[in-house]
Design a binder for these strands. Sequence first.
DNA 1: AACAAATTCAACCGCATCATG
DNA 2: GCATGATGCGGTTGAATTTGT
Length: 338
Amino acid sequence: MVKPSCCDMKKGPWKGEEDVKILGYISKNGTGNWTSAPRKAGLKRCGKSCRLRWTNYLRPDLKHESFTPEEEELIIKLHAAIGSRWTIIAQQLPGRSDNDIKNHWNTKLKKKLTEMGIDPVTHKPFSQILADYGNIGAISRATTAPKHTAGTIRRDFKKRTFTPLTPPKTQPRSSTFSSPALNNYTNYPSHSLDLLSQLQAMTLVTEGSSVRNYGLFSQMPLANSSSTSACSSSYNAGPMAKSPESFSWHDFLLDPAPNQPQDEEDNSSSFSSKQQFGTPPMGKKRNNNDGEITNGYEVQHGSSSSTSSDGSLFLEAMLDQENDMFLNFPGLMEEPLY
DNA sequence: AACAAATTCAACCGCATCATG
DNA sequence: GCATGATGCGGTTGAATTTGT
């Protein structure tokens, strides 16, 4: 027997009488079984369509007025932290559906940020992104090491723990959102190495969260505790479920961390990073001990021996170059406008 | 008033994940 | 472990509405 597909069902805008039918069904039976809902409600819609109509429009707790500035600010902050995970964002905004928020982002907020000179994807000023591209390009021109690929950077990245030393300058005005991890993420000081790191981390967080590692939100004290159920119950197994103090980016890396001795073997290979890079470009002295301080971040190496890895020297070269750039162009250190 | 362009937002689509047998 | 159906999610579409000329 052929089951009727969605193609055989009615499509298009919902009529008032259809709304009445589905509301009547839900008031009697709840929202448990969307497959049988349209049949039992006497509708020629597919269950998926009924569910969407309910969640995006008919739910009694939905607000239908326009977004407040506080809500917009929260959406922007959350988007900066987790990207377009609208369902999770909607859980922090009582009375708003994910579809509402997604539409508002796509039609209003993206445009607003763009007009402010902020890239809505990375949440960084366009000028800084351009400067960063230039910075990376300069290094790649100066050093044509075939071994130093993004993979090398990523390997080295795994060895480090990034901990902001200074508290964020700004806190979200909306008091419903006060995760230290998220604040660190959204209010970090801006500088170019971190753009690279942040882009990597953002990707990794995103990849990690795609397998339901939303531990980030398990940390969040939420004003509306009833809205936490989906987050805290499902997503608290992720690496971010650790305390903020032990927050470490390498927890989000997909590949298992390489053993340190293997790295040392790599270092003893025929390739010499010093030969490749010589002295750092501008020859600034840096503190290379564990727990070094770099542009406001504490960078904890996994092991002291890792400082000699070709990957970290590559990063050091990048850091030096970047430091010089920020000395020359201090405006790049400014916080995002919003 | 008429038309075009821009904007809004409800709804659809395809895919991923989960639950069950 | 596999197949199947249900559910959820995010990206996209397109009709309706608003704004500009």
